[in-house]
Amino acid sequence: MTALLDIRGLTTEFRVNGRWHAAIQDVDLSLAANETLAVVGESGSGKSVTALSTLRLLPQAGARIGRGEILFEGRDLAKLSERQMAKVRGNDIAMIFQEPMTSLNPTMTVGDQIAEVLMIHRGMSHGAALNEARDLLDEVRVPDPARRVTEYPHQFSGGMRQRAMIAIALACRPKVLLADEPTTALDVTVQHQVLTLLDDLKRERGMGVIFITHNLGVVAQIADRVAVMYAGEIVETADCTRLFANPAHPYTEALLRAMPRVDRRADTLEPIPGSVPSITGRPAGCYFAPRCGYARPECGHHPVLGPISGAGGSDHQARCILRAKAEEAA
């Protein structure tokens, strides 16, 4: 499979108290057409920063991409001017944001906000774009779309805003969709509808989707591949089924144990003790060591992402010193 989007060594830094700290470092991700890559990890692990960096949407002050390439169809987005980048955004690569309540412009009708992206990239007239906006709202299952296009965001509930965001993102039929927790504001039935919708669209259009979530249940339902992030790094990546069956990294294992499942009683859940270190307070050596049940003295060295052998291909990788040793021994 040739990659549609190939992120290599991406490192993004924020300035905190006058010093630059990496929020994500050496992130490698690749995404093919018609593929859903789930990015999972606890809060603060760097999922949103990864997506925002990909579209170069970081705050203009106090944030920078330190290193890395963002190859989209072979072109490095990190090198584009802001003007060239604007042509890619919303057109080739679109994003759904984690914050549906605040991500829509309060002084513009929802219809105009959807239409705007069509007018910019497709050169449509306002009238034609509004018609299309209405159809898009219908497509994301917003009831009574003819009325809804004329309404303002404050007249929309959280779930409806989330769908409007999805409509904006899908308007120009992007090749890549970055979906950052697109279903958080939705109740379970609607969540299911939206996931099915995204999956249909992915199939119909051969769209590549990077799906960010901390809900492993959703991951199992929709992902082809999974990347697990911890403290700004990818710590494991594998095929979806393989990851669930054979997690190689202690953090993935812990996430799975903490995951609510229908075949398990709620009181057998094991939440992971402790929390993700902040970007200014990452430990030396393995970042997960303070919370890892397997930690040894060797874990004082920072592990690299290494291959894990096993059935079903070679693209299973994990960032753990013990696993690397086991691989060598095998």
Binding site: E82, F97, I120
Partner: peptide
């Protein structure tokens, strides 16, 4: 956030 959304849509400066 909505300014970021507009940038993500490719709205020119």
């Amino acid at each position: 956030d909505y300014i970021r959304t507009a940038r993500a849509k490719g709205v020119p400066p």
